[in-house]
Amino acid sequence: MTLDVFLLILRLLGLVLLYLFLMQVVISITRDLRKTATVNQDEQSKLPPVIGHLIVVDSGPSAIPPGTSFSLNPQTTIGRGPTNTIQISESFVSSEHTRMWLRGGVWYVQDAGSKNGTFLNNQPAREALAARVGDIIQVGYLRFKLTQ
């Protein structure tokens, strides 16, 4: 073996190693990107799925325009107080006005001891009443339609 053959081997080895390192780096980049992609998916799936909305159909004496939509949680409280899921700052809404909850795929509506009352399809909801999609829920003088 002559020296130039040895130098050729070293040179090719150097190039191979350079590309090996580049490949290693690119592989770890792809892995990293894939990981962040799955993390983002997880974060999206962690968000609570939207399970229903209340849409204003009759704003009564309030300033809320008809068509305003409020999303519902599995446990939703409506009232004037700041701790409610849906907060409505109107004088005819009591600080804790209405409770709604989802059990076994059915929405239940119950008055929470309000002054002006809660009605489901014009029936006073002093006890828990089962509501279906399309029913009208009245909170004080404000009327909502329950939708998906």
């Binding site: 190693l17 350079l18 390192f21 780096v25 770890s28």
Partner: peptide, 13 residues
């Protein structure tokens, strides 16, 4: 793991 190859390259050169 990423450091090994570059350091080998440097020593080789």
């Amino acid at each position: 793991s990423l450091l090994i190859v570059p350091l080998i390259i440097l020593i080789l050169e």
